[in-house]
Simulated scan of single mutants.
Amino acid sequence: MAHFITKLASDFFIAFGIVLGGSLLGGISAVIFLESPSFTMERIAGNIKIWAMVAAVGGTIDPLRVIESNFLEGYLSPAIKQILFFISAFIGAHLGFLLIQWICKSPGKS
């Protein structure tokens, strides 16, 4: 059980860090090349969100195969665990995206 919770937290923070780090570094690149950092950061955060999820759960199609094979054989526990890993990674990536949106929000915007 402790390994499961650790993997959930790890997937969450990996996805969160990929979105946050990629967007912040993209913002630095925008400043260097005299572009709008807030627009660039929001665009990158939106584009990188799905890839952050994929990287967090394993980076290949194997996690989906685990769900399929276990579900079709009637073993629901491993399939549900894998789905929870995806949900954890999604929440991390989405919260990273929302944080970038909040950071980039100008005082005049609502």
Rank of each mutant, 00 (worst) to 15 (best):
I91H: 01
W102E: 11
D11N: 14
I32Q: 12
L64V: 13
I87K: 08
L34N: 14
A30Q: 06
S77K: 15
E35G: 09
L99E: 09
A30T: 04
S77R: 15
K109W: 03
D11W: 06
R43T: 14
I14G: 02
I5V: 11
I5G: 05
T6V: 13
S106L: 08
P107M: 13
S38Y: 14
K105V: 06
G21L: 06
K109N: 02
G58V: 01
G92H: 04
K105M: 10
A55P: 05
P107H: 13
E42F: 09
C104K: 12
S38R: 07
H94W: 13
T6G: 10
I32C: 10
P107F: 11
A30V: 01
S88H: 06
R65N: 14
P107W: 14
H3Y: 06
I50A: 15
G26Y: 03
V19S: 00
V19A: 05
K105H: 11
H3I: 06
H3L: 09
E35N: 10
S77L: 15
A56Y: 06
E73K: 15
V66Y: 03
I44W: 04
A15Q: 08
K7H: 08
A79Q: 04
A30K: 07
F85P: 01
R65H: 14
A30D: 00
V66M: 04
F90Q: 07
L8A: 06
F71R: 05
